[in-house]
Amino acid sequence: MSELTLTVMRLGFLAVLWLFVIVAVQVIRSDLFGTRVTQRGSRREAGRQQQAARQAPPQQRQQSGGGRRGRNAPTKLVVTEGTLTGTTVALQGQTITLGRAHDSTIVLDDDYASSRHARIYPDRDGQWIVEDLGSTNGTYLDRTRLTTPTPIAPGAPIRIGKTVIELRK
């Protein structure tokens, strides 16, 4: 086999190997992995910066955003305090169960949580409701301990033991 052919094959093989690595990184980069990074904390500030950067039609955006209830409906549940801080779950009309039981949607590793502590579900209008499932130490919405299924205002903290969760858009 001629020297030239072998050199071409050698360089070609390295190129193909690196192409695979690059394709694999592209697959990661396009964020196909069911995770996404969202800003916590100063969200409002981030939004303002984003609008300032775009400058174009901020008013229209606000008007369209404030329209129907559907636009205001929360899209995800975020754990803001406790051992699971940072976990998010997409809200897609399913019931979310919280507790220490292994089959809960969010498994709480918390001495103050009961095994089936609370659940969060949408009612027929699409309003999200939190209900305490007879837990020992209670579920708190803002500062009040829940006694009945209660609708969740956007951004209101739900506290279970050391864990705090919020619904966000």
Partner: peptide, 8 residues
């Protein structure tokens, strides 16, 4: 601060 979590 950022959150990384599962989406559908």
């Amino acid at each position: 601060t950022s959150t990384i979590g599962a989406i559908g």
